[in-house]
């Protein structure tokens, strides 16, 4: 046997670049980026524009006048805080109810399981407004109209599907052997759920929680139908503004404000993606 000198070897063998940029991917990402980002950018610019006349590409005058005007209004702050409180309450309640239910759907076999499961989908398959009106009738009798908890209830219904379907898939993806190994190590069923199933499904479930938080924050139909006139959330307030006076900037400022939860959500997601656990949750 003759030993091969690694230095001569590497000199002769051509080195291939293993990572080539994927141009098609880049083009697709760019195209998608433009479609998503440009409207957002326009709205953002409008929020800081004081004078912007067609056909100029950029506003003639920038300024914070409309921000001051908007932020000076107490009803904006009240709506912001109300919306946040609503979304947090609804999301927490929804998680509390839906996650154990989703686990039951994913792991247990009981009569009527599939029917019940489909009913969650059905609640989203029919026109929502009719359903809302019917619920509003019931709420009227219960004295829930125009109350915080009335809106919580109606928005809770809206989150059910997302908070059941996505976590069910997440729990089903958890390796059963992992749960059995935890039982084997001495954990009871509840402990297994808490220490193994939930953390294993966490990245996907976290995405579901974020989506329902943001979805609840922007929910208008239910909030308006059940909440009016006492309960005015941010989106409801924005609609009122737009209906009452056609000043683009008011709407723009409010929608930039409305982005706050989205950005918070995105930042969390990014940290999750960065840590690599997000990808693992999806089985990548």
């Amino acid at each position: 046997m003759t030993a091969i000198d690694p230095s001569t070897l590497s000199a002769e063998v051509p080195v291939h670049r293993t990572k080539r940029p994927d141009w098609l991917g880049l083009a697709l990402a760019l195209a998608l980026g433009i479609v998503v980002v440009i409207p957002l950018l326009v709205v953002a610019i409008w929020a800081f524009a004081e004078v912007w006349r067609y056909p100029s590409l950029l506003p003639q005058e920038f300024g914070f006048r409309f921000w001051q005007a908007t932020l000076a209004r107490p009803d904006v702050w009240a709506a912001m805080s109300l919306s946040l409180r609503l979304s947090v309450t609804v999301t927490l309640l929804s998680a509390l109810i839906c996650l154990p239910a989703a686990y039951a759907f994913a792991r247990m076999d009981f009569p009527g399981r599939n029917l019940l499961f489909l009913s969650f989908l059905a609640s989203h398959a029919f026109p929502k407004f009719g359903l809302l009106v019917a619920i509003a009738g019931i709420f009227l009798n219960l004295g829930l109209i125009s109350t915080f908890w009335g809106v919580v209830l109606i928005q809770l219904v809206g989150t059910l599907m997302m908070m059941i379907w996505i976590p069910v898939a997440a729990f089903q993806n958890v390796d059963r052997a992992m749960e059995e190994a935890a039982r084997d190590a001495g954990a009871g069923p509840i402990r297994v759920f808490w220490s193994v199933s939930l953390p294993q499904a966490a990245p996907t479930i976290f995405a579901a929680v974020l989506l329902s938080f943001v979805g609840t924050f922007y929910e208008t139909e239910g909030a308006w139908l059940i909440g009016a006139p006492e309960i005015r959330t941010m989106p409801v307030l924005m609609i009122t503004y737009i209906n009452n006076q056609i000043v683009v900037q008011y709407g723009a400022v409010l929608s930039v404000l409305l982005w706050v939860p989205s950005f918070i959500a995105l930042m969390f997601t990014r940290r999750l993606v960065g840590s690599g656990s997000f990808a693992k949750g999806f089985g990548v």
Binding site: D175, A177, E180, A181, A182, D184, V196, P199, Q200, K280
Partner: peptide
Amino acid sequence: MVFQSHALWSH
């Protein structure tokens, strides 16, 4: 028990 898939808790 030792499982075929090792079943270690990846978190």
